[in-house]
Structures are given as structure tokens and as C-alpha cells.
Design a protein around this nucleic acid. Sequence first.
DNA 1: ATTCAATTCCTTGTATACAAAACAGTTGAC
DNA 2: GTCAACTGTTTTGTATACAAGGAATTGAAT
Lengths: 217, 217
Amino acid sequence: MEVLRANHILEDLEQMIVTGQFANGERLDEIRLAEHFGVSRTPIREALHRLGMSGLVEHRPRRGVFVIEPGAFELVQMFEAMAELEASCGHLAAKRISEPQIAALRATDALCRAALAANDPDEYYTHNEKFHQQIYDAAQSSYLEDLAKKLQKRLKPYRRMQLHLRGRLEQSMIEHGEILLALSQGDSAGAADALRGHVVVQGEKFHHLLNHLKATR
Amino acid sequence: MEVLRANHILEDLEQMIVTGQFANGERLDEIRLAEHFGVSRTPIREALHRLGMSGLVEHRPRRGVFVIEPGAFELVQMFEAMAELEASCGHLAAKRISEPQIAALRATDALCRAALAANDPDEYYTHNEKFHQQIYDAAQSSYLEDLAKKLQKRLKPYRRMQLHLRGRLEQSMIEHGEILLALSQGDSAGAADALRGHVVVQGEKFHHLLNHLKATR
DNA sequence: ATTCAATTCCTTGTATACAAAACAGTTGAC
DNA sequence: GTCAACTGTTTTGTATACAAGGAATTGAAT
């Protein structure tokens, strides 16, 4: 009843990297990892190859694999891409969303508002994630959704930190309102713009990101 | 001076899959491939894991890896995502493109026009590819560019076929004109819309795609 | 003391051996 | 005759052994 170890290894390594269990450009020692997981080097190597393809680590021939900690520049680029992906999903969702889906979105939005009132950032984060997921669903574009979710996963630790920016949650709620309005009116361009602005890193958010990066060094 | 075989294997397999060297849901036999490349199973397996991560093959535990031939539905979804990615790049490019870059784009456009006049689809395809690459460059968003190029690579065989649609090249040139105009005016929304429309599969293109799919079965 | 070179060790890359699960073919029972 | 269980084969998944290329250390020479 042993379900293939390889998948667990991949997910665990992914998690370890994303949650910053490894230092900046640390080399991922195959032998050490093999011992850690209690397996031989082979499944470790296979997992590392996959991680390399997903962009979390870098393969330097005959040198080893190294964790890629994106710097400020890379992060801004990734957030920019995230903003565009969200905008695209919003663009499509505005054309395809159904009334029940709009109602469900409003319900989730209400939960966000409640979390804000209760001053519970974690709760807010959970519902906010669902809010965006519902937009992906409404877009009915599975490939685009995959791209968005992959990048979202990658940026998760950095997004979460934004919640602690003073006044960010209130602003976020206002943006949700704009998004909902545009979607309910079938306004593609408006939904795209609202979602883009919701994600994009600019102004104070940018400074906060930079400070966080400095702090984690 | 032997440069790691693994990379060549990966690229070759990628090429073989994309160019349809394998049947629909064919199992990629590790031993056969190992013999074909003159290596052991190990590097083959590593390459297959990477291919799995990039979405070209599917890993079924204890069963093997199978090539994923996207069906009509998946292809339409991929083209839709491609259209959105192009739109995003256009959106950013309109804000960031420089005068020299616009000039270069015009030059490439002229080459496309010349290829059209010479009735040379291959030549047109080459310059068209460069046209889009130049827009990616102007967008200055490397992550988005990566996404776009990966998907472009995946869709290459299907895009190429569109060129043989009667009247498609002429229409394409008109669209290039719209894109150029929007970019040169710094019109983000216009550039995005023009690029989206340039790629998206609809109307006759859709029927052509379906016919092609039927023909290749 | 510093620098350069050679040797040693360590790590990655590859091959092979082994284990275990799925598949196919056969045999047997109902 | 059909279906099920068993067995043999094939193929994946994992471990280990070996090869080869870097990195580090030691030693000598300037």
C-alpha cells in the first residue's frame, strides 16, 4: 500500500524550497537529501530534474543543483506576470461567468469582508484565495488557470507578507468590489484592469517587498 | 569534450514529440529509447521526468510515460492562453517600447510584407516569428516572455499550418498594421486587443484546425 | 608569505543489478 | 464456453556500483 515515494519527495522538496528551508544559492546535496528522505540518490535526482524544469532550482552541469532565490528584479517580473495572468482570466471570466457564479463570488467577497472586520488576516487570505480561484473557474480556460496557479504557488510566501501592510486589506476589499462590478457587467476590459491593479506591485507595496527581501538575508 | 548527453536527449525527445514522431497516446519505452540514444535507462528516465513537468508527457505510476496529444478542446484552450499571453506582452510593450524598437518592428513588418508579395509562406513565418519576438523584447517582462515562448514552441506545428489558410496572410498583415499602430501610439488596450485577435482561434481558423486534427489521425 | 601546480577527495553523471508491480497467456473450474 | 485464478514475462521503480569531472588541499618554488 506504499504509494510511490517519488511524488512525496517532489512535493516535499518543493515545499522546503518555497518555504525557504534552504539558504540563498545553496547546493542541494543529493546524498544528504537521500539520507534525509531515507532513499537512494536515484529518486532524489529525478525529483531535482523535475524541480529544475519548473524553475525552482538551477542545474549546473557537473556542479549540482542550486536553489534559485529570486531577487527583487525577478520577483517584480513574476508579480507583473501574475498580474497579467489574473487580468487575462478576468478578461475571459467577464464574458463567461454565470449568474450563480457571480452570486458565489459575492458570497466569498462577503467572507473576506467579515474576516477584515474580525481583523483576521489568515482568514482573509484563505477567502481571498478562493475568490481568485472562482474567477479562474469562471474563465473556463484550464491552460491559463494552470499557469496562474503555478505562479501563484510560487509567489505565495511573498503575497502573504503583503497582507501585513497597513491598510492593504481595506484597499484590497475596494478592489474586489471593482472586480465584482466589472464581472457582473460583463466588462472584460474593466475586469482585466481591476485584477491587474489588484496584483501588481507598485508604490508602497514595492518598498515593502524590498524591505522584506533585505530582512530575509 | 563530451558535452552532457542529457540535454541533447531532452531536446531531441521534445522535438520528436512535438513533430509527432510518436503515435497518439503511445507509451515511451525506456529501454527502446535507451537503445535509440545509445545510453542506459537512467538519463532517459531523467529526461522523461523533465518532459512530464513541462506537460508534454503524462506519468502514470507503474505504467509508464505516455505522450499527450492535445485534442481539439485542449488545443483551443492553449491557443486562447497564447492569445492572452500575447495580449499581455502587447499591453506592456505599448508602455515601454522605444522609438528604435518601433522602427525595428516596422522593418520586420516590411519583410513580412515582402514575403507575402513573393508568396513565400516559410519566409513569412520566419519574419512573423521575429515580429512577435520583438514585441516580447519591448515588453521587458522576462517571465511573461518565457511563458509565451514555451507555449509558442508547443503550438508551433499547429500555427504553421494556419499559414496555408487562403487569405490568412493578407489578414495577418492587416492585423500587424493594427498592432504597430497601437504600439506606436502607446495604446496599451489597443495593442492587447490587436494581439489577442491576431492569435485567437475563431471562425474559419477553428474549422481549419479541426480538419487538420481529423486529417492527422 | 604568496602563488601556482599536482594530487586527492568529493560530487555528479551513467550503467547495471535487483525488487516489485502490472500485463499476458494459460490452465482449470464451474 | 466462459470466467477466474495462477504463473511467467515484461516493465517500471529503486539501489548500488563505477566513471569522470570539479574542488580543495598540500606542497614546492619564487
